[in-house]
Design a protein around this nucleic acid. Structure first.
Ligand SMILES: [Zn+2]
Ligand SMILES: [Zn+2]
Ligand SMILES: [Zn+2]
Ligand SMILES: [Zn+2]
Lengths: 129, 129
DNA sequence: ACTTGACCCTATAGTTACTATAGGTTTTAC
DNA sequence: GTAAAACCTATAGTAACTATAGGGTCAAGT
């Protein structure tokens, strides 16, 4: 199949597919005489793998590491485990930050009833301090 | 004071201060004969305002809007309120996403005891499906 | 055979909020 | 007088895409 069909089947945009290829996350496909990319079905699995990783917010560099690890099926999976643990730690950290943000924003919002001038607005006062 | 001192006092890097100025978040300071930026104390308040907004993850564009609103103290503060509400909605959305991420990552991590080959690793299996 | 339109190609610029150089000028201290 | 420290502008890099610009290829219809 050509890239347009792969794009529709996978739900990835054409540019993203080409970008993933450039970054080494997809193997380079064959080309037609006219230089069009020509994919076989195996690339769909690769692309799904990448998409699944991205949905977990794993960086492209880490996805590449995972792909490299996948190609060494005999080795220990401890690196895989470490990578996921690190990703989890990142998510936990961001969640903490977001909770703090949420608290402060909520408190700020509660000081404003929208029925005021900017000069007297509690939100602006909070932001000024 | 010159930019180095402002940087130390405020905790913003020199480049960041110049960047904020370029983006219109700080008023342009006077210059010495030799073209060095020369600040008076009022800029510190401006910078603190920006920093406080950034700590709430408000985008530079929205900070600029807030600054513009601040300069119209007689107007209604409903725009301010709306902007903060929107920011809160954004944070809530990201928190939901992060929770889903965390769940999936945790579940994946639980399928791996690090004592396996990559071929048999539960994490890799999850990512493949 | 020829044209039109859909599809494809590469290369480049834009996005956000900075950070980091490169290459140069000014000030300050000795 | 000179050397270091501080400053200046302009430009490139970061992450993961998205969006053009300016082409080439291919299938269908006339
Ligand atoms: Zn999943
Ligand atoms: Zn208000
Ligand atoms: Zn605060
Ligand atoms: Zn494992």
């Amino acid at each position: 199949m050509k890239i347009g069909e792969l794009s529709k089947t996978s739900g990835c945009s054409i540019q993203t597919i080409r970008y993933y290829e450039k970054e080494g996350l997809l193997s380079e496909p064959e080309r037609t005489e006219g230089n069009f990319r020509l994919y076989d079905v195996t690339v769909l699995k690769q692309l799904e793998f990448v998409k699944h990783c991205r949905s977990l917010d794993i960086s492209l560099i880490d996805i590449k590491r995972l792909i490299d690890l996948k190609n060494k099926p005999e080795e220990s999976c401890s690196s895989v485990n470490a990578l996921i643990a690190q990703q989890l730690a990142l998510v936990n950290k961001r969640m903490k930050e977001l909770k703090a943000l949420k608290n402060e924003l909520q408190q700020m919002a509660s000081t404003c009833n929208s029925d005021n001038t900017i000069e007297g607005c509690g939100i602006i006062k909070s932001l000024d301090s």
